[in-house]
Design a protein around this nucleic acid. Structure first.
Lengths: 222, 222
DNA sequence: CATGAATGTTAGACTGGCCTAACAAAACTG
DNA sequence: CAGTTTTGTTAGGCCAGTCTAACATTCATG
């Protein structure tokens, strides 16, 4: 079975389950999925049951949700589609990096395998999307994200941004104003615990980031 | 209401109704729609009823099917999307003209108005798609097809192809082999009535076309 | 112009995907 | 460790869209 034969909602569930393991450790819960997909828990519970019936996830009632190898392959393919489409929209159609997420979210369910292949060729087999996220390769090779959240970096360290979550377009526009993007270098000045603020220096400017912003940015030491 | 808010099936019904009036005269019937959309007549009958309830078509039981102004606007927008997407796939992603129809048929339901606008700009506001069909303008201006079926041309006349129906990819590949495409000039040698064959000269080659092929080609005198 | 053929509509069933409400299980917490 | 809170599941309803089967209307022809 190819990923195109799944329903759009099945594709979304699989992608969500897989994505939750990309940057975190604990397996995702029904409640968290419902929250992040703007659905009711009962709907997700039902959807997971359908996926289990198709052999794409394993799930005992009240148990954890795990992808089967088949489910994982489909999920990775959807992530690949999403990130290639985002890259395509930016590079070929002149979209801003803050505009591509929602468009890709819809297109990823509609494009054919052929189209994805041609986009990949046209772009020269890119390895990272506009937010710095790695683009899984066509053969579904293992895919190791790198970096740590900005919130976990010790003060005084200078680091380079590897990825920025694409979830919030408004935040991305704010980051653009600040000159923050993939590959930007910055210095962490301090974490102020009770204010929940992380202060960074980027260029010659000091900026305070709240938790939602600081958690959206992933970095590596350099 | 914008066309994106309609369901995919509503978009398809409207496009089909409108398209039936582009090259023919008589209004389309439920049976013909069912046939061309590979659905059962009962399904189409039901779909038309839903469209009527939304004020997009007028239809009394057993009566004729007519688009309302709102319905027509949506239909034209869908045709615009389809033809712009076909053009985009050929010019930007290197598709063959025989490959684009099915891909566009799916993408037209998924792309945003913004994306259509950017594609239109990227292509420089094209006026004809890869099969020669006119691309309706963004403001829904009246849209007059031109030309006549090859079958209606008198023998000995030399004509230029204005459009070729995109319905059958195999046929398009055959036309490519023959060097037939939009703007190709050819001479009609004869119609052989009981054989249902039209003989044309294209370049220095004489070719016999059966009815399905001859009816797919539209031409103007020159 | 009456009747049979062709065409169109309605009724009822099913699926996927969503919801709300009621219930069940698990996980805290005093 | 028992009660309460949180989390997850089930039951039942709804909608769009498809189907088959039965029925209604229209058309065309003898």
């Amino acid at each position: 079975m190819t990923v195109s034969e799944l329903t759009a909602s099945a594709q979304d569930y699989l992608k969500m389950i897989w994505s939750s393991t990309e940057w975190a450790e604990a397996p995702i819960t029904v409640g968290a999925m419902a929250e992040r997909m703007a659905l009711k828990p009962s709907t997700v519970s039902d959807g997971i049951r359908r996926l289990a019936k198709q052999g794409l996830v394993t799930h005992a009632p009240y148990g954890s949700i795990e992808l089967t190898p088949a489910g994982r392959a489909h999920a990775v393919e959807m992530v690949r589609r999403h990130r290639l489409l985002e890259t395509f929209l930016v590079q070929v159609l002149g979209y801003g990096w803050d505009e591509v997420h929602d468009e890709a979210e819809i297109l990823e369910h509609a494009v054919s395998d052929t189209m994805i292949q041609r986009i990949d060729e046209k772009l020269g087999h890119p390895t990272r999307d506009p937010h710095g996220d790695p683009i899984p390769s066509g053969n579904g090779l293992p895919h190791r994200p790198q970096g740590d959240p900005l919130t976990s970096v010790e003060p005084e360290r200078t680091v380079t941004i590897t990825r920025i979550s694409d979830a919030d377009p408004d935040m991305l526009r704010y980051f653009t104003q600040l000159g923050l993007g993939p590959d930007t270098r910055l210095q962490v000045l301090a974490h102020r615990p009770y204010a929940d603020v992380t202060t960074i220096r980027v260029g010659d400017r000091d900026v305070d980031l709240g938790p939602s912003a600081a958690e959206a940015i992933w970095v590596v030491a350099n």
